[in-house]
Write a protein that binds this DNA or RNA. Structure first.
Length: 609
RNA sequence: GGGCGUGUAGCAUAGUUGGAUAAUGCACUGGCCUCCUAAGCCAGGGAUCGCGGGUUCAAAUCCUGCUGCGCCCGCCA
């Protein structure tokens, strides 16, 4: 709890100095207490034992007494005295508990303005976040979803943290994958595609279990898959595709246009799916841009000047990275082919240099399969005097029976998952509220609940942890899920509806609210726990953004929802026709934080469900 | 062969730079809707934190060896 920490730290420092115990790096030891019942911050006194020649428990007791003394005797420390509710020594720990009234004061003033509640002050820092950037060769599947959801959540959280964010999609508009798609669109008829896929024992265009007719990503992926099948059988296709790839890498306009025409409808279809998840981009940058404007050629020239440069027999060029800590079968990083053309990674280097001209800090979201490549690109960037980006890696999403692959057709499509999630959510709403709400309202609730649940299910686990997709988990609507958090929010909203129905103006009550007229000493524990959680809200946001670990914030929001639910049970805002304005103010602070927190995670904060 | 990551109750996960009785959800047992939405709340059972060493007053956390799983080691993207 930073606000509390900042007040305590200098005071504790002075007391430790008085006791001659300040030659340890004790600042780092002052941390959040494990058990909320024991305090908000704790200082373990074990390290002092040796130098003080006293038992840790005795030291803690002495320090506790010194602090109590300081609180009562020093008039200058009013803020300290106001903030510190209780100090005690237990089992060698010195525990500090924040004063509930002070907590309330801090939390309520920080969250009284709905515009700024639950956010951090504007920093002006420009952050460019590149994520998703999936090859536009087929519908968005759940395996790709982790990148998009992780990336978009980092985008959203950075915005909440006051940064100026730009979300970019790097469009692979050249190279083999699009070339195969373009070749297929040009050379294969629908009948032929069907015949090829059936012959290979694959699902044909019309054989799908779900109906996504007319959605180009779903249609064209069959062409892509059929071309891949053909390529195995007929090497002349490989050559044709190879020629297209070569021309695209030379920036040949006609070929790039054909590629564009082939993939753009697919990309649009993918973006439609992403849009349903609340994922959008500020900019699309095409890979070909850097070939056409000559920056790739320039980068290759500069790389040639590196002392690490080597040349293969056929003239291909590479950097020898053994001295940079790269090991394995090959330590060579090729940046130019024998024919002088560039490689994907080389173009990525150009892209990064350009990205640096657009921002102060740079974040990439990449699958763990890109770890080596990313390291190579980072070294190469430093070789040419540029800077490496910050990269967030994630582990792949697998299906219970293996890895997903668009090429092989072993996938769960996001469109299908979202439909299923919506259907299941609809079943729940209509069961609970079928006799209160009209169909249209329930449909929109189901859409929000379904999509939010899918997002949360993926974002709540640490990126570097392996993830196996299971339907029953993806569609969980109970504790530990997005609907659980959303439900807390609707509860807070329902209170406002209740006040409104009684003709009570909540805004009026709140503007006249004076904390000083309330005695918080006998407040329910659940209320204090909620205040404590709200006081941790900015810390959770800041930490999550700083470490690029959105699951930490997801976890915090879950805890906030739990605390709110308990508060809701214990602290009735309307009781016997009377409004408890303190409770109302706290409920509103929590509502704002939950709402903004939901936005940060891409969960839709419904007002009723 | 080498590198990177991961292994926490039956299952899925949390555990910021080492700190108190390892937290949460699902599942399991029992209780709570004349009361702001029960998609909720309360109580209970369930863990040799992969295995062995080491560092420390203190290790799920740090070091080391082993082991299971994942990813990578293309003049592919």
């Amino acid at each position: 709890m930073k606000i509390f920490h900042d007040i305590l730290l200098p005071q504790i420092g002075e007391i430790l100095a008085e006791q001659g115990l300040d030659n340890l790096p004790w600042e780092r030891m002052l941390g959040n207490a494990r058990e909320a019942s024991q305090g908000d911050l704790a200082l373990p006194c074990f390290p002092f034992a040796k130098m003080a020649k006293k038992a840790p428990d005795a030291i803690a007791t002495i320090l506790a007494a010194a602090i109590s003394e300081r609180v009562t005797s020093t008039a200058a420390n009013t803020l300290f005295a106001e903030a510190l509710g209780e100090v005690n020594a237990v089992g060698g720990y010195l525990n500090f508990k924040a004063d509930p009234t002070w907590l309330a004061k801090m939390v309520l003033s920080a969250n009284s303005n709905p515009e700024t509640a639950g956010t951090l002050p504007t920093t002006g820092e420009k952050v460019l976040i590149e994520h998703t950037s999936a090859n536009p060769n087929g519908p968005f599947h759940v395996g790709r979803a982790r990148n998009a959801i992780l990336g978009d959540t980092i985008v959203r959280l950075n915005r909440l943290a006051g940064h100026e964010v730009r979300a970019e999609y790097y469009v692979d508009d050249m190279g083999k994958q699009v070339a195969i798609l373009a070749w297929a669109m040009e050379n294969l008829s629908k009948d032929k595609v069907n015949a090829i896929l059936e012959g290979a024992g694959r699902q044909s265009i019309d054989g799908g279990s779900n109906n996504w007719d007319g959605k180009a990503d779903h249609e064209r992926v069959s062409w892509y898959q059929a071309a891949n099948v053909l390529k195995e059988q007929d090497s002349s296709i490989d050559q044709e595709v190879g020629e297209m790839v070569r021309l695209s890498e030379e920036g040949e306009e006609k070929v790039l246009e054909a590629f564009d025409a082939a993939f753009q409808p697919v990309l649009d279809g993918m973006l439609e799916t992403l849009g349903r998840l609340g994922i959008a981009f500020d900019a699309f940058t095409k890979e070909s841009k850097f070939v056409i404007d000559g920056s790739v050629a320039e980068v290759m020239d500069r790389l040639q000047a590196s002392p690490l440069r080597g040349v293969a027999e056929n003239g291909a060029q590479y950097l020898e990275l053994e001295s940079k800590g790269i090991s394995g079968k090959s330590t060579k990083f090729f940046f130019q082919r024998g024919d002088g053309s560039s490689l994907y990674a080389t173009r990525d280097i150009s892209y990064h240099e350009w990205k640096w001209t657009q921002c102060d800090s740079l974040v990439n979201i990449l699958g763990e399969d890109h770890k080596l490549q990313s390291k190579q690109v980072a070294i190469a960037l430093e070789e040419i005097g540029s800077k490496a980006p910050l990269v967030v890696f994630y582990s792949f999403i697998k299906l219970p029976d293996g890895k997903m692959s668009t090429r092989r057709g072993n996938v769960v499509y996001m469109d299908d998952l979202l439909e299923e999630a919506k259907a299941q959510a609809f079943a729940v709403v209509s069961e609970i509220r079928g006799n209160e709400l009209d169909n249209e309202t329930m449909q929109s609730i189901a859409e929000a609940v379904g999509c939010s649940a899918v997002r949360f299910n993926i974002i709540k686990v640490a990126p570097d942890k392996g993830f196996t997709f299971r339907w029953e988990e993806a569609l969980s609507f109970e504790g530990g899920s997005a609907p659980f958090i959303m439900y807390s929010h609707t509860r807070a909203c329902s209170i406002l509806r209740k006040l409104d129905s009684k003709g009570i103006d909540a805004a009026n009550l709140l503007s006249a609210f004076d904390l000083a007229s309330f005695d918080l000493s006998a407040s329910p524990q659940s209320m204090v726990d909620l205040l404590r959680r709200l006081a941790l809200h900015p810390d959770a946001l800041a930490d999550s953004v700083e470490n690029n670990r959105p699951h930490q914030f997801a976890n915090h929001l879950l805890n906030l929802a739990i605390n709110y639910n308990t508060f809701y049970r214990d602290c009735h805002i309307v009781q016997d026709g009377e409004v408890n304005v303190l409770y109302l103010a706290i409920s509103e602070a929590a509502r704002h934080c939950i709402r903004r927190g939901c936005e940060g995670l891409g969960i839709i904060p419904l007002t009723q469900m």
